[in-house]
Amino acid sequence: MPEAAVPLGRPGWVDLASPDVSASKRFYRGLFGWSDFTLAVPSYGDYEILTLGDDQGPVVAGLQSLADDAQPPTWTCYFRVENLQDTAAAVEAAGGQELMPPTNVADLGQVALFQDRQGADFGVALPGILEIGFGTEPSTVCWIELMCPDIRQPRRFYGAVLGWEAVDHVHHGRPWITWKAGDRFFGGAVSPDEPPPHTPAQWIPYFWVTDCDASAARAAELGAHIQLPPTDAPPGRYARLTDPTGAGLGIITPARRPDGAETSTRS
Rank of each mutant, 00 (worst) to 15 (best):
A4F: 02
V6E: 04
R10L: 07
A17Q: 13
A17H: 04
D20M: 05
F27H: 11
F27K: 06
S35T: 15
F37D: 12
V41P: 13
Y44I: 07
L50E: 12
T51W: 02
T51P: 08
G53Q: 01
A61L: 09
L63W: 07
P73E: 04
P73L: 00
T76H: 02
Y78T: 07
L84R: 05
V91S: 03
T103Q: 02
N104T: 13
A106P: 04
G109H: 03
Q110C: 09
Q118Y: 10
Q118H: 04
E131S: 04
S139F: 01
W143Q: 05
I151D: 05
Q153A: 15
R155W: 06
R155C: 05
F157N: 01
A160Y: 00
V167S: 15
H169C: 07
H172R: 08
P175K: 05
W179I: 14
A181F: 02
F186W: 09
V190P: 14
P195H: 03
T199Y: 14
P205G: 12
V209D: 14
S215Q: 07
E221M: 03
G236I: 13
G236V: 13
L241F: 02
L241R: 07
T245C: 00
G246S: 09
R257I: 04
A261W: 01
E262Q: 09
S264Y: 04
S264L: 08
